[in-house]
């Protein structure tokens, strides 16, 4: 497994120019998560109206994998229903353990190489865990 398989161009691009990297002014849901082994910190803000994710932003710091994954996730779920967003997170996590996704994962598919680096899976799923936690709040 070479480094280029892990750090694909798409990942480097999201890491260098993250999308939706901002705090929302009026989030309806906010979740902060820590990755205690790495010291990564992520805050995910969601604005949910009528069951739709109308806006999403993230802040924090972490490795290129966790930041790129957060950037890709926010792009993928904006404008989707909360059910679709949760399904995406679930399919993405299964995808990292080798299960093909029935839905289009978009740029997130570039993270496939992470499955070969077990210690980095928690980096790639930090934002997805935050999303699941946020959407399970009332």
């Amino acid at each position: 497994m070479s480094l280029d398989d892990l750090y694909r161009e798409t990942i480097m691009d999201h890491n260098q120019s993250p999308r939706n990297r901002r705090s929302l002014e009026h989030p309806t849901k906010t979740v902060g998560l820590l990755n205690p082994t790495c010291g990564d910190q992520l805050k995910l803000d969601l604005r949910v109206q009528d069951g739709m994710v109308v806006d999403v932003g993230f802040t924090g710091h972490g490795c290129s994998i966790s930041m790129a994954s957060a950037s890709m996730l926010t792009e993928a779920i904006k404008g989707k229903s909360t059910d679709e967003a949760l399904a995406l997170a679930r399919h993405f996590k299964a995808f990292l353990t080798g299960t093909p996704s029935p839905v289009n994962l978009g740029d997130l598919e570039a993270l496939q190489g992470v499955s070969q680096f077990p210690s980095r899976v928690k980096c790639a799923t930090l934002a997805h865990n935050a999303l699941e936690k946020a959407l399970s709040q009332d």
Binding site: L3, Y7, C38, I65, C123
Partner: peptide
């Protein structure tokens, strides 16, 4: 501009084992 975890990952590809993280000293 490079997260310590990414440093450790590149190092590992060259068989150089270092630690990256908060070293149990937050």
């Amino acid at each position: 501009g490079i997260h310590p975890h990414d440093i450790a990952q590149v190092f590992d590809s060259k068989a150089i084992a270092i630690r990256a993280g908060h070293h149990c000293a937050q």
